[in-house]
Design a protein around this nucleic acid. Structure first.
Lengths: 180, 180
DNA sequence: CTTACCATGTAAGGCGTTACATGATTCA
DNA sequence: TGAATCATGTAACGCCTTACATGGTAAG
């Protein structure tokens, strides 16, 4: 349990409330989870097969508007596995920001180049912030009748993102100021 | 150049202003860069050898207070390589926060468990913030005579860390409030 | 009719961690 | 004298990305 492959639990988590195909999972990762997790098809499909072999998932084929899909559902064993992981303490939180690396070593290069990096970081942060705010508003607008327990947690992660990006933007402004 | 191994440039960057051993590099990573980059000995030592083979580094042995060390210095080719990388646009900034994963999927588990995760995230953030503030104060206290150009960039990364952790703490407070 | 997207997969290879192995020195 | 730290390395293995391969469908 200690060395759980993270993608395993990410997939199990996503499948807890809806049945999804590998393609769907990729989309979820690229939108809702994009700010703190990611994966490529090259890891998603093999992982789905592994999880099915371990009896954590069951698959079936579905003809969705003329398109064949392989849909996965979670088993009780899968839920148990996820639950157990959720109860374990967090092992590692990490941030790998190339931008920060370029800032740290900027003494070796032109300050103008650094400014460009920060400007593009600023732009990206603004875009991400906007997307997050839209998603947040959307979620808040769901009528209470349809609101489920997990919406609160989803909101919490978006608020994390919003606060984080606001911090980045604050830093960008101050950094840009100083570089001039 | 597009697919540069990041540890390569991290090491080259660190060696730009001082000669260091593999062990020293590990220490730098665990302190000054810890908030946005990391590496283990198992990757540092082989990378140093590779970089020397590629003529980006030169090593020599040094007897430092009865301890033998292998010290590395950067070559012109090494500086050029680093400089070139610094000028390339940032490819990828990423955050992999297990804590956020546990928040996102918290619906499957007990809310108390989530609270514990957030509390421990809060504690870690507080500690990190304190360390950063100490390092920042230390750096600000260096007499101007000894201050070099790169200090400013180093400061910038610490300010990034401070703003980021302050954001995390703000989020923690609000999240803890909501969970009660 | 062709571009984009839907949909699933495999193979090669890179990068990195953990665990192990070794041995010297410092400090309590 | 034993534990902690300094110091360097190797081997096994895991995880992931990229690139490739394939084929269907929707929309302009």
């Amino acid at each position: 349990m200690a060395n759980t492959k993270k993608l395993d639990v990410v997939i199990l988590g996503l499948l807890c409330h809806e049945e999804l195909s590998g393609y769907d999972i990729k989309q979820r990762l690229d939108t809702r989870l994009s700010m703190f997790w990611g994966a490529s098809f090259g890891s998603i499909y093999p992982t789905l097969k592994e999880l099915e072999e371990r009896k954590f998932l069951i698959s079936f084929e579905k003809e969705d508007q003329k398109r064949k899909k392989i849909i996965y559902t979670i088993t009780e064993a899968g839920r148990d596995y996820l639950k157990e992981w959720l109860e374990q303490p967090v092992e590692k939180d990490e941030l790998r920001y190339e931008t920060l690396l370029k800032v740290f070593f900027a003494g070796e290069s032109n300050t103008d180049v650094l400014l460009q990096h920060i400007l593009s970081f600023q732009k990206k942060s603004q875009q991400q912030l906007q997307i997050l705010k839209l998603m947040e508003a959307e979620l808040r607008n769901i009528p209470p009748t349809y609101k489920e327990k997990e919406h609160g947690f989803y909101l919490l992660t978006m608020e994390f993102g919003i606060i984080t990006y606001e911090g980045y933007l604050k830093w960008c402004e101050s950094a840009i100021e100083k570089l001039k």
